[in-house]
Structures are given as structure tokens and as C-alpha cells.
Design a protein around this nucleic acid. Sequence first.
DNA 1: TTGAAAGCGTTACCAG
DNA 2: CTGGTAACGCTTTCAA
Lengths: 344, 344
Amino acid sequence: MPIINQSEIARKLKVSRATVSKALKGDSDISDDMKQRVHDLAEKLNYIPHYHARGLHSRKSMTIGVVVPDISNSFFSYAVDGIMDAADRSGYHVILAVSREKSEIERKNILNLLSMRVDGLLIAVSKETPDAAIYHKVKISDVPLIFFDRILEEQGSGFVGIDDRGAAKKLVDFVIRCGYRKIGHLAGSSHVRIGRDRLEGYLDSLKDHGLPIRKEWIAEGGFERKDGIAGFGKVWTGREKPEVLFAANDQIALGAYDAIRERGLKIPEDVGIVAFGHHDFAQIPSPSMTIINVDPYLLGLEAMEMMLKFIRGEKGFKTTVRIDSEIEIGESIRVPENGGFRRI
Amino acid sequence: MPIINQSEIARKLKVSRATVSKALKGDSDISDDMKQRVHDLAEKLNYIPHYHARGLHSRKSMTIGVVVPDISNSFFSYAVDGIMDAADRSGYHVILAVSREKSEIERKNILNLLSMRVDGLLIAVSKETPDAAIYHKVKISDVPLIFFDRILEEQGSGFVGIDDRGAAKKLVDFVIRCGYRKIGHLAGSSHVRIGRDRLEGYLDSLKDHGLPIRKEWIAEGGFERKDGIAGFGKVWTGREKPEVLFAANDQIALGAYDAIRERGLKIPEDVGIVAFGHHDFAQIPSPSMTIINVDPYLLGLEAMEMMLKFIRGEKGFKTTVRIDSEIEIGESIRVPENGGFRRI
DNA sequence: TTGAAAGCGTTACCAG
DNA sequence: CTGGTAACGCTTTCAA
């Protein structure tokens, strides 16, 4: 038996459709008796309101479209968690689409969501060079657009992201406070924003503490495991070795582990490793690793909250937000026992 | 500028809405010239079809509702990946809802999805005792319902799950083929289906190989890390120790690791550990662990494919499918070098 | 307190 | 080949 509609109820009750509609939403000008009868019958006949028919009229879908590059990536799945929680609280629904890091799929996803008349779009752009045309389309269609994590330069849209530079600085500051002075950096590519920002943060910290910048201890490359292996090779050639290496992400750290193991070196005795990441590192169990723990859940929460402000037409809020991070101390470097900072 | 509609195009072109509608979907009885003009203007005015208005008429949403208990759980995020891929191929959309393992949220999610008039419902039930009423509602509303991974006894619905029993047997068979005869089991709770099935598979294998069942080497408990610690304690008390332990999941295995480390024992020299899981174990890096690798992606794929058969009204397909698993060999047990089966 | 009618964006059926 | 009209399920305004 397919789901019935209001007309059906109206017919059985020999009243008009309008009466049923009003009774169902508790409109004050329907008698309590009528309301009761309508509700009872609705329950009995298993009536379920038709969300989109309602939306057609109100021109609101109470739905936010979200596009992420990859849902199996724990970073994004936590972010989506945060997004959904924030949406829930305000009675919004979320429709999730996955772009698989392909801008073509991203384009289709966005078009679909627009077709569904979502009230807003929350997007983490794919790694591929984006299709600017689709974003132009979004813009002229007046649908609020907010980017999270990955930004696409598109003026007039909001952005919520991790404070990479600040976090990197925070982590290196910590390492320095642990007493280390010789700190290298296995950087990612400086063609990518996160690569640049993390490198900048590292440099900020060194400068702040009056430490020299030793180019031979900075290895640029990619963000893959192999880049970690190669990077370690580069910074480990000179006469003087760094005491601690700051890896720009988990894959690079993993590669460094490989290289270290291969040389018969030990962590943290011979060299310490700290890395940029979040607590659900897929490959390196975080308890054994000292990381700067970025919180994707919080990022999702903030992104959706910014969206809601946007939609409600609030004024004067910041349209660019950067999420702060916390240090999680693992066994990959030696931390002074009584330095007064077991947990930062 | 809000998104325009067909009427707008019709007005500007001084033709009827019907003509525009037909031209846009390439109906054969519209002149090529007219089609061209309509398409051009649509493009120019940034027309985007209204998905739900269309659905209102066709009474099809081309959308499948999916409910999972937890999207940050990599098992489910991979499953959702599979679900979305299969849906995509057939032009279906997916709306994802997350129940946070709460049956009350699950109930709301289902109601929402029904309100959105999804064409089908794909559900992994939450751990809490389910609200049977909502499933009854689904049933009488004629919306196709398929459970995946976690089943709720509800006759007439499809189910796609992991073949836990077969997989457990396969893994223990492998351990036996490696030459071990003393194999214990850190079981979960036998009140839960997966606990029972994995235990059964373990027993199946022992029986098949004519090995005795040693009750003192089977520890039942829960599925948490602490249960792994406790379980190891139980099976490690007797005079004769097992050579290999089969843990019913990753958390239990992790607990066993803790207990083993605490006693100063070594893996795999003193005791081997194999476990039930999938390749993206959150806590134990899978390369170091021998596991029976279940594939959640495949599960999602199969579940959605069953749904599509259901919707298309195909006949005679199996409504219960169990997904097979593969062994992934890690360093947690010693495997004979030339046993002829480096990879199964 | 209830009902009639118009409208939301689209499609389908018939006429012309 | 094109257009008028009703219908999809619901809400809202205005009358009764």
C-alpha cells in the first residue's frame, strides 16, 4: 500500500484538504476535535508528509548540500559528522555527495544539489584543477556557498579551514620547549597551500626563538610515503644531524619511519618525529606519535554554523574562520618528565 | 538572482511551458530549431531543472535513503562508498543519514527519508534495541527495504552481510595450514550474531581438521579492548598455552597486544595473533597483523545492487547475500616461507 | 471553524 | 510541430 496523501484523509473524513493540512500542523483556527480526528486517522492510515511537495510551495528545502572529495578519508568523515550534528540542531537536513577528487564529478554533484534546490552548499574542493564555470553558476544562482578545508579562490564565499600555519608553529614551539634546537622539516610541496602554510609555521617558530634556518634540514617534495623516504635521505646526509623532524603529514612521517628503520636507527633515541595530522591517523597509531591534532569534527561544525548564519541573514560575522589545533604527545620524541607540560 | 524556471523561458520565447518542457528533454516532436533556441536561452539564463517538482509528478525520486550508525567508522564509510558508486551507475542519488547507534535517531532518520519519498531504504541498524514500530511503518508503506551488515529480523526484507562464519573458518583454516594445532579464540559476546558466527566458524575449522575443542582456550566477553585484556588473561592461565589466538575483532586484538606486552611476551615468537577485521583497522596497522579482510566496499556495492533489482521488479534473485573475505598476511604469526601460500 | 481556489515547477495527455 | 490543461501533494489567502 503506497503512502497516502492529505486528500485521502480529507475524503474519508468528508472535510476539505485545507482543513486536513491545517489540522496536521496544529493551526489555531481548527477545532480541537477536528485536529484530534485528523491526527488519529493520519496515524491509522500511516500518513507521512511529503517533504518536497511542501518545499515546492515554501521554496525552502531545509536541506544543505555537502560535497567532499572522499568519504573513506577519516578527515572528511569526521568533518561530515560535525556538519550533520550542526545541521540537525537547527532542523536542517544534509545531502552528501562525494567527488572522488575529480572535478568532473564535483561538477555533476553540485549541479545535482542545485537541482534539488538545496538551501546552501558546503564544499571541500577536489584536488584536480577545479571547473571555475560551475562555481560561477553557483554564484549567479544565489545559493549560499561555503568552502571548508580546501579553498577555491572565489570572492564572496565563506571559508572554514584548519589554521595550518599556526598549528605548525605551535608544534615546533613545543618541540623547542622540550629542549631541542636542531629541528628539520619534511615539507610537502610548496605549490600547495597547506605545504606552504606548514613550512611558514615551522619557519615562524624558528625565527621566534632566534634559531637559524638550516636549508639542508628542510626537504621539499610531495605528500606521499615515498617523499618521506626521500626527504629523510636529504636531511640525513650532512655531518650534523637534526634531532627532531617535523613531517608535514602522516604519509611523509610514515616514509620517514621506513627510512629510519632501514638505517637501523631508533625512534626517539636517534631521531624524534613529530607530524601534522589528526588523531585518527590511518597508518600510524596516534598514541605512539606526537602530532598536532587538528579536529575535523570541529571544522565541520564551524562550517555548518557559518552556513546557518548566512542563511538566516545574520550580519557582521567573520566569513573566514581558521580552526585551532591541539598537541597530542606520543612516544616519538622524548619529552622532559617534569617540564611542567605533559599535556599542552 | 534566484534560479529561473521553465515558465520564465517560455515567456521570453513567447511559447508555452509545455513546449519548453519538451524541448528541454529532447522530445521528438519539437523542431530542432525550437530545441536549439530553448536550450540556448536556458543556458544563458542559468536554468537548472527542479528535481523535486519533476519527482512530484513522476512519483519517483530516483533517490535511495541510506542509514548507517556511524560514518566515522571506516567500515561504514567504505560501505557508503560502494553504495554511492553502485547508485551512480544507475543514475540514482543517495541520501545519507547517520543514526549514531541510537534507535531513536534511526527512527527519525527513517521517517525523514520516507518524507523525502526515497525509492528505497538501505539500512544498517543501530546497536540499540530497535524500534520495531518504525520498521512496520516502512513495510506497510511499500518502500523497498534492504538491511546491510546488521540485520533486524524482519521478514520480507533483503539482507546483505559479511559471511562471518565462513570467514572465521577460512582464517583458522589458514592458521592450521601454517602448521599450528593449538589455537585459542578471544570471542566476543555470543549474545550477538557476529560473536556467535565467528565462534562457530572457529569451531567449524577445528572440527574439520579433527582438532579437539579446548574450552579453556576460548574466552567469551565483549568486543572492547578491555575484553581482549581479560580474555588473554583467561586463556593464558593453564599449563599448556595456545600458540595462536584468533581475536573476534580489532579492539579485542588490541587488548590482547596490551596483555602480551604487559607480560613481557613477544609476538609472534611467544604467541601469534590473528583477527577478524578489514584492511583499514583504525588501531592496528594492518600490514603488521594477519587478518581476515572483509570488504565493506563490496558489501555496499552488493546491497545497492540488490536494491536496484528490487526496484526494477526483477524476479528470482537471492534476497540474502553474504560477502566472502580474503586473508591478509601480516607479521603477527609466523608463516612457513615455502609453504606455497604467501598470499591466499 | 471550515472550505474554495490559486499557486509552487514540472510533465503528460489531447487538441489543434 | 505547438499549446492548453490537468495533475502531482501541499500551503496559504480569502470568503463563507
